[in-house]
Write a protein that binds this DNA or RNA. Structure first.
Length: 452
RNA sequence: GUCCCCAUCGUCUAGCCUGGUCCAGGACACCGCCCUUUCACGGCGGCGACGGGGGUUCAAAUCCCCCUGGGGACGCCA
């Protein structure tokens, strides 16, 4: 029988990063086995489920590139894929169990599963055999609430049966549920799917990747808005609890599809560390095709949208290509907006201090004077409004040759005249991306600041 | 508290199933050096772990037991 797996989030919140990892592993497992990946919306909790959250979950998965074969938005042989639309089946199944004396009503009019006496063994692809004494598992799981509506337990198991789910891949926090569900599977169909419980992802403090972590990011949307690429997130998530057979670390979606193997999933909970995610994000920013990164980066320089559009598409790509070496998150791009377009750069304190007195001050002023002259003298090429990298190089050479100032002062001075700061991205890239008129205006502004 | 799961560098991990090639390998972070007229990138090197105790064995990170530590589950939530 061919592999069928499902990811079954409940739309009571946006897609959490931990849920994304579960979805990813299901997706990779399905693809690795040429199987089917089902997205099912487990919205049995009507009070807390919303369409907005469902939309967020679908959008997040699309953004991550985790696509599904059957789901609420597509027709499939097992539709509907929203549990709220399958309520009758769930209720009927629960009542059938009651008729067969496999369930019973408690004093509160809640229908509960009847436990067998003794032990249940869960055979798990990751954890091995886990033995549970059913009597130690606490209260029997509720199947129908006192108001007659089905609960997660009956809905989930019945749907897994009806949708021919062969493998259930979910977090280890479901392990005790699985013992109960296994009883339900046997009662409902006599067949039990294969289970794989993934190790949990812990927050940096070591416990539960819960509401808040050090960076305040928990949902996929939040990570996206913070400037992470889906490629980096997928890469990072894949390495939490799993490792590549050749220990490769930077893994593309294609490589993951090629090499994923549930057998290599470990059983140890992993802490979510931003340092590694940041490293991978920077790596992907540097290694993905420029067009792709340029496109993704646009969202983070929204304030300069018009100015960027005015300069044409090639401008933006060349800027991103020149500057991406310095990026960790796409949101870092925001800082480059003013660097590219502002007419009056803020002057950094250390820059002001560095050139405020003595020889440094004198040297700086002579660089500034000559720089202003060059900006007036050196013509632009063709119909360009910026100097080329070569022209800028030539101009710095002139400064170095003509002035009785050491090279360091020339370059640092130039950097301050162009950016107002002593450090920043490659000056050649930057200077050749800034319009001459802006360069002139800035030089004037900086000189004025240093003269007063 | 009860039950379940887990335990290798600060972190993610390889190795463990099929004991010896492991005085434990990689990656992130950190620290040096190189590259560089800044910062990054890149290159090279360094620091750094088998939780403890018993077994089994000629031999244990690898197998068994106990302890300790960590995590999870115990809802008319999913």
């Amino acid at each position: 029988m061919s592999v069928r797996v499902r990811f079954a989030p409940s739309p009571t919140g946006p897609l959490h990063i931990g849920g994304a990892r579960t979805a990813l592993f299901n997706y990779l497992f399905a693809r690795a086995h040429s199987g089917v990946f089902v997205l099912r919306i487990d919205d049995t909790d009507k009070e807390r489920s919303t369409k907005a959250f469902e939309d967020d979950i679908l959008d997040s998965m699309r953004w991550l590139g985790i696509d599904w074969d059957e789901g609420p938005d597509s027709s499939g042989d097992f539709a509907p894929y929203r549990q709220s639309e399958r309520e009758e089946r769930h209720r009927d199944a629960a009542l059938r169990l009651l008729a067969e004396e496999k369930a019973f009503y408690d004093d509160e009019k809640v229908l509960r599963l009847r436990y067998p006496i003794g032990e249940v063994v869960v055979r798990d692809m990751v954890c091995g055999d886990c033995v549970f004494n059913m009597q130690s598992l606490g209260q029997e799981p509720a199947l129908l609430r006192s108001n007659g509506t089905p609960t997660y337990h009956i809905a989930s198991v019945l749907d897994d049966v009806e949708m021919n789910i062969t493998h259930i891949i979910r977090g280890q926090d479901h392990l005790t549920n699985t013992a109960k569900h296994q009883v339900l599977f046997e009662a409902l169909s006599g067949k039990v799917p294969t289970f794989a419980h993934l190790p949990l992802i812990l927050g940096e403090d070591g416990s539960k990747m819960s509401k808040r972590n050090t960076e305040g990011l928990t949902t996929v949307t939040e990570f996206r808005d913070a400037g992470y690429l889906s490629e980096a997130l997928i890469n990072f998530l894949s390495l939490l609890g799993w490792s590549h057979p050749e220990e490769l670390e930077t893994l593309s979606r294609e490589e993951l599809l090629r090499s994923f193997d549930l057998g290599r999933v470990n059983q140890t909970a992993a802490k979510f560390e931003f340092q590694k995610l940041d490293f991978l994000n920077g790596w992907w920013i540097r290694n993905l095709p420029v067009e792709h990164v340029a496109r993704e980066a646009r969202a983070f320089v929204d304030d300069y949208s018009d100015l960027i559009d005015e300069r044409g598409p090639e401008f933006w790509e060349s800027v991103v290509d020149g500057l991406r070496g310095k990026l960790t998150r796409l949101s870092d791009m925001a800082a480059f907006g003013p660097l590219l377009f502002s007419l009056t750069p803020d002057i950094a304190d250390d820059a002001r201090e560095h050139f405020s007195e003595g020889d440094a001050h004198a040297g700086f002023l002579s660089v500034a004077k000559r720089w202003c002259e060059l900006l007036a003298e050196v013509p632009l090429e063709g119909d360009r409004d910026c100097y080329t990298v070569e022209q800028f190089k030539k101009m710095t050479k002139i400064l170095k040759k003509e002035l009785d100032v050491d090279a360091k002062t020339v370059f640092q001075g130039l950097r301050v005249l162009v950016t107002g700061s002593l450090s920043g991205p490659d000056l050649q890239v930057l200077a050749s991306s800034i319009q001459r008129s802006v360069l002139q205006e800035r030089a004037r502004s900086v000189v004025a600041a240093f003269s007063s």
